[in-house]
Each structure stands twice: as C-alpha cells, then as structure tokens.
Nucleic acid binder design. Structure first.
Lengths: 120, 120
DNA sequence: GAAACCGAGTACCTCAAGGTAACCGAAAGA
DNA sequence: TCTTTCGGTTACCTTGAGGTACTCGGTTTC
C-alpha cells in the first residue's frame, strides 16, 4: 500500500529522511515552529551555525517545500522565513526527537562513561 | 527546569541529537523495534549498509546505552542485538520521522521539481 | 584438503558537508 | 567620509563519516 520504504537504499524516501536529519534542519524547524523569523534571528537563536551554512540549509528546505522565503527590497534588506503547511507537519516529529535528546541526554552520558570505564 | 538545550552548541544534548540522526541509527532502531536480530539479519534488512559501518553504528549505539550485544561463543559465531529499555523509548519518535519521510516523500519530490523548474 | 560460514578488524581512500575569511550593495547614522 | 547594517556570495580549506578491499578464526561440509 505504501510505495516508499526507507529500508530500500534506492527509495527516494531515504534521501528525504537524510535531509530531515541533517545537522541544522531539526534546529531550524524547532525555531520556526514558534512563528516566522528573520534571517538574523535564526542565526542568533540556532547556536553555532554560520551564515553560509544557514543559507544553504534554508535554501534546501525551501526547495523541499518546508519553508517559504519572503525577501523585502528595503535597505538594509529584510528576509523572513516561515514554515509551509508541509513544514508544520514536521514540527511534531522533530520536536519529539529534540525532546528525547534533551530528556535522555543524561542517561546517554552515563551509559557512555560506564561503557568507557568497562573497556579500559 | 530542563538543563539541556539543543540550541546551545556546547550542550551535550546537541551531540546526542546528532548521534540519533546519523545515517544508519534510525534505520537500525526501526528494524530492532520488531525484536532482537542477528548481525547478518540487520545487514540484510538495512539496505545499503556495509558490515564495517554497521559494526561501527552498533558499537556506538551500544556505548550510548541504546542496544545490548550478546555474543554466543558457538562456531560459527552468533551475535544478537536487542534494544535496551532506553533504546525502546526511541522507537516511537524515530518511527514517526521514518513515517513522515515515507508519507511525504511524494510532496517533497514535487516541491523540488517545481522549485527547480522555477529557477531555471 | 579445500571451501563456506559468521562477525568482525584494519589499512587505505574518497568525497561532500561544513567551516573560515573576504567581499558585496545601498542607505542611514556619526 | 567612514562605518554599520543585513543578508547574503564566493573561494578556499579541513575533517570525518563512510566506502572498498583484504584478512582472520575455528568448525562443519563437500
């Protein structure tokens, strides 16, 4: 019934999944979930991202239909980014993952240190 | 209240999230969600993964406390992998993401082609 | 005696994501 | 006149994830 299967390496859903799980997409979606934001706001809120990579990430998300870009020809320029309807359906699953990372980071850190201790 | 924040680049949850979203972890979790599996079964079901990289992925997941490895000293050797309790809490969020990719792959593909067409 | 089986380990290589630094244009403020 | 602002672009470089190919250890099967 479902034509797409991520376990099949040739399936397009595989590359879609890789896109969703790249370095910055989950964080950008998380910030935009609160509402539209300017380029500079995104750069400031997503800690550690450079302007170049943020641009690349946003372009890729725009191409995938997750985000709309609205550029105002004012000076200095102002550019707003907003999630599309499709992008908004991603908020819940990505938020769940972000939440998991934050909730269970402590346990993972513990597991790592006992593993490292055991394999000295 | 929550000490971890993925938007902070220095926060450990950031690296935890990156681990969860690496190339093979979501797929391995998806397969192991159905129950324990042998190394060879995993290699066969997760299309496109090589033995070396599967080993690396499983070691990393074991270190993070997501998976247990049970090696039987039979000949030829038999090694079973199983999700831990912590790993099982990952099934739902990662499955949601996999499901999203499979459900919306078509829309993403469409968005890409109209974007590419518009920017000729 | 040779080959297959299973779950690896190791050396080597490739390639693309991501980072750094410099620059841009037009307007407004000092 | 000089700098700052904003949202980029470009050239260049680094790095590490991941891929290829080869090896191994015993035991069973042919």
């Amino acid at each position: 019934m479902q034509p797409f299967d991520v376990l099949n390496p040739a399936c397009p859903s595989r590359t879609v999944l890789r896109h969703l799980t790249d370095r910055w997409t989950p964080l950008v979606v998380g910030v935009l979930a609160a509402g539209p934001a300017r380029f500079g706001e995104l750069r400031d809120q997503v800690g550690g991202v450079t302007a170049k990579v943020l641009t690349q990430t946003l372009r890729s998300m725009e191409r995938d239909g997750l985000v709309v870009r609205r550029a105002l020809a004012t000076m200095p320029p102002r550019v707003d980014y907003e999630l599309t309807a499709l992008g908004r359906t991603l908020v819940e699953p990505l938020d769940a993952l972000r939440g998991w990372a934050e909730q269970h980071a402590g346990e993972v850190l513990e597991a790592r240190s006992s593993y490292d201790e055991a394999t000295l």
